[in-house]
Design a binder for these strands. Sequence first.
DNA 1: GTGAAAGCGCTAACAG
DNA 2: CTGTTAGCGCTTTCAC
Lengths: 342, 342
Amino acid sequence: MAKKRTSIYDIARQLDISVSSVSRALNDHPSISVALKERVRQVAAALRYTPNTMAVNLKTGRRNTIGVVVPNINRNFFSSAIEGIEDIACHTGYDVLICQSKDSGERERWIVGGLAGKVDGVIASMAADTDDHSHYNRLAEAGIPLVLFDRTADSVEAGTVVGDDIQGAAMAVNHLLEQGLRRICHFGGPDNVSVWRDRKEGYLRAMNESGIEPQSDWIFQGCSTAREEGRQAARQLLERHKAGKPLPEAVFCAGDFMALGAMLEFRAAGIRIPDDIAIVGYANEPFGALLPTPLSSVDQFSYKMGCMAAKMLFERLQGEPRVDIVITPELIVRQSSIRTNT
Amino acid sequence: MAKKRTSIYDIARQLDISVSSVSRALNDHPSISVALKERVRQVAAALRYTPNTMAVNLKTGRRNTIGVVVPNINRNFFSSAIEGIEDIACHTGYDVLICQSKDSGERERWIVGGLAGKVDGVIASMAADTDDHSHYNRLAEAGIPLVLFDRTADSVEAGTVVGDDIQGAAMAVNHLLEQGLRRICHFGGPDNVSVWRDRKEGYLRAMNESGIEPQSDWIFQGCSTAREEGRQAARQLLERHKAGKPLPEAVFCAGDFMALGAMLEFRAAGIRIPDDIAIVGYANEPFGALLPTPLSSVDQFSYKMGCMAAKMLFERLQGEPRVDIVITPELIVRQSSIRTNT
DNA sequence: GTGAAAGCGCTAACAG
DNA sequence: CTGTTAGCGCTTTCAC
């Protein structure tokens, strides 16, 4: 099998020149004659030479690789952001190392620690289940620039690319308020994740600005914004309804999967959407547009977010200073939030 | 910034021992006293030492990284397979380099060429737009094992993990035939992609075994199995219908996105699904279950496929011989293919 | 048990 | 324009 790869020594010997000439020829160094370059390239091709990246990297000190850490690759928001990252990286000649934290802080710590010696820079979106982000600061100490997207933390020294989730949430809630709806619930995630905290904040602000004081039991915070959490929150509302409390007129969910869970649960209970309860989600996952009642949602431009994060990282790699980018989200209104019976 | 990373020399100096002892201590070599190991580890931690992976790799010849090449990361089938790959790789201490071919053979060729010097092994699913797969054979020449999943080619020397697409397609078509449907169309992709070819083959076999000779105009082969291709195929059928030809009783699509496009087009034309036309897709993408008329589809177990591909690659890395695994798919019957009016 | 030293394959001074 | 040479940081014989 591993029949000793051909090195620049092999091709130097073949042409009876020195390795440095070969190296220079291959790297298109100006001080090598065109003729020699051509001959070197020919022999290299004939010998099926491919440079040993490890050696190059060890020598130059650059690894030409960036690391990406996300909770889970198998979700449109993240895979789409990664697509953006990969598109930019590939353009710049960098490779992309992908790691999944699975939303576990412990696993994330382990991953980030290992990344230090392997990559020139890191792009990450933080794991949900932890408040300790100190492992990310290790990167800065090692001189490895970090760009955080979507889920960030102030305690970490990094450039950031985030959506304006406060504004996005407010847009969603205002859209409901403008239709005259008042009893608006919020289904969200734990406060330790920046985006979920912000979306709740946006909800609260929009409500307050309309002079409505959201009651404490209008807000549900699950362990995440997964489908099941949405189901459970909806179930709670239905229970209360049975006990005599009126249903809310609308629900603003911090995530589309959560909104989906809620819709399914409501529908199973015979509640009509949007006529009985209007629903707005967040993230504009593709499936939302395909539902029997298409789901209104807030688009975060995930692909673009990935592109910008990658561009920012490469700029920092060039020595540019740290910056923070905020992307204005867009409310996509679909059937699930348009009241027809008022 | 890059304040010279600490190396084993730094820690050797600090303890006044040799670098080899440090190296051995860090690698838990048996011939080092427990006490020394402990002291070394302490200093290493204090100095925030992380090994320079490039140096280790250059020395050992292993890169501890595998490359993954897929058409597009942002599609559930692939991102889910990658999730499986990453789960296994992470378990084995390997890193995962992700590349997207964007279904371009040229880009794929470039990527695969570059991967040669960077990874120990490659897992790939082939780009659709080419018949030239010779670049993959370069890997074997360089001693880099290759595992192909889903989209493969006989001309390439590689272990494979594929679904039995002929059987999967036959299952789908038989399910339609068993309901007494006869005029069954097939919407597929070009023949140069193995899975599309096989699904067509499965369709033809099932039809023939039932004594039905599919007419040539029952088969549509788009440029891919994208949503738009399904739309166009459906439109053609509708045109013919206007010209007096009867609509088919069912359509078997080689992909769920294609099936979605067809459903949307049919629905827009007032055709009811499944009552006028029954539809079955392929891949069991999550959105299918959420559609107004839930889509029947063939599940390929993509996550599992990724896991098996990764395991196979690691076995080949251990010197195990090349094998081929075929996964039996499962037909998931939903509303879109159940005739209620017969 | 521990140390000295030879490279892994490549690049980049430095010296012609 | 080209060759010689010294490492990059680490592992690993081979000696002691």
